[in-house]
């Protein structure tokens, strides 16, 4: 450990603002990227499912209207 105390560690030899700003923004942006990427993936899979169900409904409706027009 290079620092005598935890408060000295937080002070970073007087450069606290710059050091913690850098690390904070870096990890913040990285976490944001991860969250957005996973959310996008989940959303995509959901939209695939929705589209699939829509296709099934369209098919059903078409068959129904076909049956009624044949009568």
């Amino acid at each position: 450990m290079q620092f005598d105390s935890f408060s000295a560690f937080l002070e970073m030899g007087g450069y606290a603002f710059y050091v913690w700003l850098s690390f904070g923004v870096t990890f913040g942006v990285m976490i944001l990227l991860v969250v957005l990427s996973y959310r996008q993936h989940k959303g995509l899979l959901k939209s695939v499912l929705k589209e699939q169900q829509r296709q099934v409904r369209i098919k059903e409706a078409r068959e129904k209207s076909h049956a009624s027009s044949a009568r």
Binding site: M1, Q2, F3, Y15, V19, S22
Partner: peptide
């Protein structure tokens, strides 16, 4: 990098940004 690496003799602790930069 933040806690155990030695200080830079010119830049002090500000050099620790190197570990992400």
């Amino acid at each position: 990098g933040l806690a155990f690496a030695p200080q830079d003799y010119q830049q002090g602790d500000s050099f620790r940004i190197i570990y992400i930069h």
